[in-house]
Write a protein that binds this DNA or RNA. Sequence first.
DNA 1: GTCTATATTGCGATAGAC
DNA 2: GTCTATCGCAATATAGAC
Lengths: 196, 196
Amino acid sequence: MARDPGVRREAILGSAAALFANKGVAATTVRQIADEVGILSGSLYHHFDSKEGMVDEIMSAYLEDLQTRFRHVLARATDPRQRVHNLVVASLEVVEAHPHAAEIYQNDVNYLLQFERFAYLKNAGEEVRNTWLQVIEEGIAQGAFRGDLDAKILHRLMRDAVWLSVRWFTPSADYTITHLADDCTSLFLDGLTTAR
Amino acid sequence: MARDPGVRREAILGSAAALFANKGVAATTVRQIADEVGILSGSLYHHFDSKEGMVDEIMSAYLEDLQTRFRHVLARATDPRQRVHNLVVASLEVVEAHPHAAEIYQNDVNYLLQFERFAYLKNAGEEVRNTWLQVIEEGIAQGAFRGDLDAKILHRLMRDAVWLSVRWFTPSADYTITHLADDCTSLFLDGLTTAR
DNA sequence: GTCTATATTGCGATAGAC
DNA sequence: GTCTATCGCAATATAGAC
């Protein structure tokens, strides 16, 4: 604890997160995690109470970051277009900061929600939803966004499109997450069509 | 076999698909499937060679239907806007016809791709991708779609948004999959903004 | 076609030496 | 903090009676 606060813990969590994301939580064994780290499976239980304990830490950190960023977006008042863009940017940034956790959430929410321990995943999902809804409905109310499309539908389409970028997007030097964010916002707000 | 060609098989596959979709393939046990059907787990092996055998049948039927529909869309030549719409409709229809399989694919592709048996999932994914790409690039080439957005990015955003509707959309009398398809197409092509 | 019964393997987790 | 060793259990799958 003195000079090595939790380096080993972090290493374990990193390996575990990668395995959980790639193979699924249920299909990943504690022995595989231990192998990756270079220790024996029993030794993991000095650091964590259980496999689910590892998942818990990974997901908690992810969701706290996510919620913080989403609250900041709501707190900053600007025009509707900019607010949608800020939500897109916040989503992409948190996914970039926690890529494994984001993928675990995408793949394994249903599975994890079977454990009472992970009930908080539901709350986080609802907060994300409410944030999107608020931004969209505000835009409609102000006349900036079309009123003929249901906000609940719109929120799902945009949210999922952005979220799932974790499965395919890897930033490069000439196409960064800023570029992707701009393109997402532009597609959602302006559409694909040229002439009108 | 005479008058009961495969009713029981179908019942088993139905229960299995629902469980796989809700809890994940790896986390679903053959005992749970057997319980659901009202037989003992050993009896399942009279109908299927293994748990993966069941997944295989579920996913094969889904992907064949999907590929057939996507090929039909490509075969029918119309304007780019209509073609994008047709892809959206085809996606939503196949998801409606195989809701469990669609969800299994979303949640468990990575897991399933670990088995050689499921290598065909990769091919199907690529065919879907290529179909979207062809339609989008055609639209750009014809000047109907904006050329400043990369087709590969666009395809992913639209495809994932439509695909993931399987997680939240349940058709009702006054909001059917036709309505959802219209709204998807309208959002993607016209955008959310009112004034320009 | 389903049952009983069980083989076999691999899992999560623990106890205690070092 | 990691190892050795292992417990207890649940998983997939099989064999053979009915």
